[in-house]
Design a protein around this nucleic acid. Structure first.
Lengths: 107, 107
DNA sequence: CGTGTAAGGAATTCTGACACG
DNA sequence: CGTGTAAGGAATTCTGACACG
């Protein structure tokens, strides 16, 4: 089963554009990576590439930071969220496999 | 009613990444713009920005070109497709407005 | 801790042009 | 017509560091 790699999660946006999209400085964006809040990929030449999903996460981070929340705390909140999302995703995938094996019953 | 500006149509990808994604040279990508096959936006500093939708169009163009279709011909085909898409989009929008005014009946 | 900045280098992007055909 | 390439300049991105605190 092919993983989606959708428009939302495909990492293709460079840091300058992410900066425009989020209002954050490039320094801030790189720092949040250092603190493990986001995980850009690297292009062949080594420049950071972000997804729309990363941009949304960064906007969340910016809001939390404005409230004075420390990066370490934001990190653990994000981890919780990621775990949930992963569970939802796994659940959907299993459901897909069941449908494939036994056919779709639900109308 | 706010226009979508979704992940698919938001122009945020720079030409180097588009080149990787499509297998086309930057020269080719700029030339197809010159011939009015694609319409990137420009960032504040003047660099071209493409959407995932543009990337898909470019892949279509690459396939047509391999078959030997001239850019002029591809241009008119794309225009036809765009007209259809616009009509579908308008139709959906009107449906949305109707639903908003009279409520959604269809189950 | 979180962010700004100057520093130097490497890679990117841009335009207009010449080339081939 | 469609694409390659060399050219020169401007803007981008990277890393490691110093600064403030």
């Amino acid at each position: 089963m092919e993983s989606e790699s959708s428009y939302k999660t495909r990492k293709v946006i460079s840091i300058g554009t992410v900066s425009e999209l989020t209002g954050l400085s490039e320094r801030q964006i790189r720092y949040y990576e250092e603190r493990k809040l986001i995980f850009p990929e690297r292009s062949e030449r080594g420049s950071r590439k972000y997804s729309f999903s990363d941009v949304e996460t960064l906007i969340d981070i910016a809001n939390k930071r404005e409230e004075g929340v420390r990066t370490e705390e934001i990190r653990s909140e994000l981890k919780r969220k990621k775990t949930k999302d992963d569970q939802a995703s796994r659940s959907k995938m299993i459901q897909g496999q069941l449908n494939a094996q036994f056919g779709i019953r639900k109308k």
